[in-house]
Every structure is written in C-alpha cells, then in structure tokens.
Design a protein around this nucleic acid. Sequence first.
DNA 1: GCAAAAGTGTTACGAATACACCCATGA
DNA 2: TCATGGGTGTATTCGTAACACTTTTGC
Lengths: 234, 234
Amino acid sequence: MTDAYEKHDRVLVALDCIIFGFDRQDLKLLLIKRNFEPEMGKWSLMGGFLRKDEGLDDAASRILEDLTGLKNIYLEQLNAFGAVGRDPVDRTVSVAYYALVDIHKHDKELVKKYDAQWFSMDEIPELIFDHTEMVQSALKRLRYKASYQPVGFELLPVKFTLPELQQLYEAIYDTTIDKRNFRRRILSMDILINTGEKQKEHSKKGAYLYTFDEKKYLEGVNGGDNFKFKSSIS
Amino acid sequence: MTDAYEKHDRVLVALDCIIFGFDRQDLKLLLIKRNFEPEMGKWSLMGGFLRKDEGLDDAASRILEDLTGLKNIYLEQLNAFGAVGRDPVDRTVSVAYYALVDIHKHDKELVKKYDAQWFSMDEIPELIFDHTEMVQSALKRLRYKASYQPVGFELLPVKFTLPELQQLYEAIYDTTIDKRNFRRRILSMDILINTGEKQKEHSKKGAYLYTFDEKKYLEGVNGGDNFKFKSSIS
DNA sequence: GCAAAAGTGTTACGAATACACCCATGA
DNA sequence: TCATGGGTGTATTCGTAACACTTTTGC
C-alpha cells in the first residue's frame, strides 16, 4: 500500500444502460444491435466507456442521451460487473445503470440510427457478454424499488388511467392484481389527482385520467428507505 | 461506438471494504490509519487496486484477507463510486464491498501492522475521500439485508445466546426491540438449535447457548428475494 | 433475601387478501 | 339490448406491536 499509484493496472471502465419503458401493455427494454466486433449483429445493452473527466453518473446519462435523445431521465446505478473474461477483447469493468423512460418520448431517429428496438420482457433475445445477468439484476431492482416507492411517474405519460397504472404494476411483477385492492392502495397513498377527464379509447364507459401530485409523489420517493427489523426476515 | 477499444481512457479501479464486526455489545467497523500520502495519518477504509487478471470479487477478497487474514468471509458488492475528484491524486473509480466478520477471529498481527482499529458505529472518525458515504451506504444495505435474511451467522461466534443475538439486531438498527417479540420471531424462523448448554458469564441465571442450523439458515439466506406489490409503496 | 438478567403469553390493531356485483356507453 | 371494460365495499386472516410477571441463582 505504499506503492505510488503509477504502479497499478489501469482498465477500461464501461457503462451499460438497462432502459425500461412501458407501452400501456408490457414492460419493455430498449436494446441495440451491435454494429462492431466482437459479437457484431447480436443484441446488446446500450453502452459506452467512461472518460477520465466525467463521473460515472454523468457518463451513464450521456450514453442514455446518445441513444434516446432524452435528458434528466431517472437513472440509478445497479452494480459493477467485473469478471475477468466478461469482455473477450480487453479487460473491462462495467458499471450497470437502469433507466425508466416514457417510451413515447425517445428520439426515433437516434434509435433507428443505432438499430435499436424495444423488446417485451418475455421476448428478450440472447444478449452479449454478461448483459442478460445485468437485465435480471435490473428487473429485480425495479421490483424492489416499486415495492416501496411509486414508480409510475417515470414510466407513464403525464395523464394516465388507473387501469393503465395497474397494468404497469402487473407488468413489473408479471402477475395479476385485484382491481379493488389495487385502487384502494394506490388512492390511499394520496399522490394521484383525478383530472376529471375521461379516456375513451379503450372502453365505452371511459376511464378517468389521473396525474401525479408531483410534490406528494416526491415525498413518497424520497422517504421509505428505512428498514426495520420485522419478521419478514424469513 | 465503432471505435476500437484502444481509443478509450483507462482508469484505476480501486476496491474499498467496509468491514463490520460485533463484539457482543456494539456493531463495529474496522478502519486503518493511512500510512501514505495523500491524507497520510487519517482514517480510511481498507482498500487496494484491481489487478488486470482478477475479478472484482476476487480483488475484494484479497484485500480483505490482506488486512484480517480471513478467507471465505461474507462479502457483498455495494456500488461503484466514481465522482471525478473523489481521489485527488488520480482518476479512480472505487467499487465498495461490505464484509461481515466474526470480530474475534481476525489476525491481530496483521491488524497491528496496518495500524487498524475497530470503531463503534457512533464513534466513526472523519474518513478520507468519500469513505464516509460508503459507510453510510453499507449500513443501509446491512439493515436492508437483515430485514429479510438472518445475518447472525457471519457476525457471531458459533455459540451465542438469544440476548446476544438480540443485542446484535439492536446494534444494527440502533434501536431497542421487545424481548418477547424478538424471541418469538427468531424462534419461529426455525433456524436455531438450543445446545442445552448455558452461558453464565453475563448473568446468574445463565442463558441458553444456541447455534445456527446451517442448512435451514442457508435456505433463509438464499430465499426471500422476491418483492411483491404491497402497500408499503408509501 | 435480594439484585440482575433470563424466560414466558395474551390482547389489540392494522394491513393484506379474497371476493361479486352494478354502471356507463357504443355498437 | 348486450357486450365491454370501469368502478365500488365488506368480511376474514395474518402479521405486528404493546404490554408485566415469574424464574433462577450468585452474592
């Protein structure tokens, strides 16, 4: 430990983004078709390399923006992946981030340029390197996050119906939820505002459009981080 | 993205270990006194640099062993820390790991060699760089982990009493727990075996010594990772 | 016999689940 | 008028939290 820093190995640090979206039906992932070797033509997460003069979070934002054209997106670090052979070309450590985006807002030209495509979670193709593991980890984290914080704000358009919000949660957890219980729980959180308008595209009766009460929503997001000792130790 | 890898920046990847121990009273952290610049003489987490030919987890184990002499210790990655100026000497990305060790088992010679010392959580000194942030993050993670998995096995000696185990949880959560509720919950997990022996050092009546039922303990550790949608969204 | 820590059960409250019918409307 | 999806309430179960006294034994 008395070595000068100069003696130590330097490695490439990559960033990979697991980009989640929701099309009012399925939870989806944005993947790109790799246009360079190795593994050219295979599907991959959007990634890039860390530059010396930028922080990890900044680099992840940059890479996300490169593909989607979107700024100020919800982005959270997952983990570093650093097995020796994970990238066959060179020793790289990859830091994975997951992003929640409104699927309708991304820049379709950029996505085309990268040969990118949205995939439903149950149709994810084989991915390069350890990207499948990263996706699994991201889904787990998203489920965890959604279990103690509201997540709709990032994934839904400004106005949405309760059946749509329920569909989002059902997609995240790949399950079905009782309508009455869902509505009671969501509404009791007191973060939704009924706009009074109705969405009539999907039903004859029409469903009320809601928006998030941004202030209360953020309180919910910022709190809820304290774990107590409870018997859910299991 | 069509660049050859060669064009990209290479950076130092460091590893820092947040080492938790428990002395039957307080939750403690093992820190070293830095014997090189910058910040020589200040307290720091045990750290080191990633070598090209080893994985991240391996590097963290190596660094942990360097300080404690211990192998096969519970070690889990927290996060990568990568703000630009976090190490004033050079651009480094640090991957933080936290470890749970039996405080009585470490190699005291090694610890002396590194000028290391155990600190109670409420007496942690000022740390270099972003190490304080890493410690906070580790404590949060430990609390989270302990909320859905048993953690005593890694932090306690083979035989321990229920009051000691309770003291451990109270230390982790910095709170008090009702004795009757605690015992009921822990015992209902069905992972403890009463050895029949009594510990008489701390009381006249004596408390039963328990051991973990390793098989059932590991089932508990490996499960409990599925998050459901519940109203704890808050 | 008394101080000190170990050990033991019951009640009450709140959250989660299960469950079935009416409503509004366009075709 | 009927098919479709939207909207609503109640009863039960289960987990969590609150709470006080008895037991053992070394001094």
